[in-house]
Structures are given as C-alpha cells and as structure tokens.
Design a protein around this nucleic acid. Structure first.
Lengths: 148, 148
DNA sequence: CGGAATAGTTAGCAACGGTAACGAGTTGTG
DNA sequence: CACAACTCGTTACCGTTGCTAACTATTCCG
C-alpha cells in the first residue's frame, strides 16, 4: 500500500498528505505542459475565466485566481501584448478597467484546451472508472477548499 | 451548482478542472502557511521524505519531489545550513551523498506538522464527512497521477 | 469642498525551478 | 591496465511567478 493511502486514513494525516499530493501534482502539471504552448498556465486560466464568466475587471480576475492585484496586472498586460485580451475603461467607474477576450484569445483557448489536457487526460485514462469518479467528485471539493 | 462540478461531469472537462483546482489550491496553501514557519513548503516536504523513508541521496530526493537535481541540491544546502539535515559521503560509492535527518530536523518536522496543516485541517473541518471521505480516497490517486 | 476608501498600476524583491556545463568517481571494454 | 563512457552531485546563470510597498486616479461620504 502506498504511504499516502496509509497516512490519509486519519484526519490529521489527510491535511498533510493532501497538501503534499497537490503540491507534487501541480509541479508535475507545470512541467508536463505541451512545449508549443506560448502562454503560461496562469495566463490560460485567465482566458478560461473570461470565457466562462464574460468580461471581468483585473480585481475580479485576481480574486478568482487567488492572486494579488499586481500579479494579475502583469498577467493581463502580458495577455494584452499578445492580443489575447482587450482592456477598456469601465462604463461608469473610471477607476476600473474591463478585460475581455478577443477572438484570438478565444481561439487560442479552445485550441489549447484540447492539447493542454493531453497529459492529464492520458493519465486519467490509466485510472479505473472508479478512480476517475473519485476525482470527479473531488474536483469541486478542492475548488471549495481554495475558495472558502 | 458550481461551474467546476458541471464541467467535471465530462472526462474532457475533468482533466481541465482538476488541473485548475489543483493549481489554485496549491497557491492558496502556499499563501496560508503559518507565518513563523522558517522553512519553505518544499524544504518541509524533504524533511518529511527523510522521516518517512530514512536516509536518502539528493538524487532520490529529487526524484521523489519531482524536481531536477540542481533544485534539490539547493534545498538540501539550505536545510544543512539550518542544521536540519546532515550530509555524509556514501559508504561505497563516493560520487553519492547521503542526506539524513538531524534531531533538530526531526523535532522541527514534528512540531511544524501540527501547525502547518492548521489551515487545511480547519477547512477540512468545514466539509461534510462524505466530502472528507472523497478527499481521503482522492489523495492517493492524485499521488499516483504525479508519480506515473 | 476635503478626507477616506477603492482600483489599478509601477517598482523592487525573494523564492523556486530549469538548463548548461563541470568535476569527481565508477564502470566497462579494447 | 588504460581510456572512454557514464553517473552523481554541484555550480553558475536565467526566467517565471508571486509578493509588498508606494503612487496615481477616481469615487464616496461627511
């Protein structure tokens, strides 16, 4: 039996092992990304958020991605440089900025979405249906943990 | 229904949403770490690996933590500076180095292990027993994904 | 009107991970 | 035995990513 499974039997160990597993898997995901992917994982996540939620302000994007505003400013600036998003002033509150997906950004998102999950989808394919079901149930719980 | 739950119903979406959730949770975990924790998360993970597996070489540690050898060299050097680990030459193969946990390192690991899971354990406490059970089942699967 | 609060940005810094190149030691082979 | 090929760890260097602090512009409120 893997060490993780043994330790995760207790609630105390669950926090510890879940944290280590999440860290390692994230590192692996960052490394296994397709090489001809010109945008970072976080930049792609921003495109995904815009695609899903429509136009957002940098502040909303920062909150959504759990990043500080200056970090999101940089990511958005990088995306704007590449023509993936457009920035325009807010209609009524001129302090705010509205970020929206361009056609190029949307096309990039959809094209990459297939490729960029290649590795993980491959690994998921190696799992049993039961294991995939567990992960399917776990994904929203992990999301809730990072949001709460 | 949260967006993640909807998207994760399909296998294609599972890879995508799992990846985003893992990334966000990891970022959150890195940020919510207890402030008086003098070692980085990765350094603590190395102490944990030594505690669990006994003495290891830098190469074995690098493989285990899914980083490149130079990165592990740096982490081990930092740990040695703080007196958390000791390095000695390998008995028979003098190319290799054996890293072992010192008493100070072990004490730090055990003391921190309680504190450093504080935030996650707190969040886990907000979940239902069923949700915790899902995560308990998911942890070894996530581990398997990053190891395979 | 004038001060507090808010949104975004800029500047500077630290942590972390990667590649390339190198030295020491080991192994295999002519 | 000698020398080439390989392995392990390390050093040097670079890019990415996230943060805090400080600044500007704008809005809100007393």
């Amino acid at each position: 039996m893997p060490t993780v499974a043994r330790a995760a039997r207790t609630d105390a160990g669950l926090a510890s092992e879940l944290r280590l597993s999440v860290m390692r898997l994230r590192r692996r995901l960052a490394g296994e990304r397709h090489p001809d992917n010109e945008l970072s994982m976080n930049a792609m996540a921003v495109l995904g958020a815009l695609h899903r939620n429509g136009d957002l302000t940098p502040g909303e994007l920062a909150t959504h991605e759990r990043v500080r505003p200056p970090s999101m400013t940089r990511t958005v600036a990088c995306l704007e440089d590449g023509g993936y998003v457009a920035r325009r002033p807010h209609d009524t509150d001129r302090r705010q900025v509205v970020v929206s997906l361009t056609a190029h950004g949307r096309a990039t998102l959809l094209a990459d979405r297939r490729r960029r999950d290649e590795w993980l989808a491959l690994r998921l394919g190696d799992l049993t249906p039961d294991e995939r079901a567990v992960l399917r149930a776990a994904a929203p719980i992990l999301e809730k943990l990072s949001t709460s």
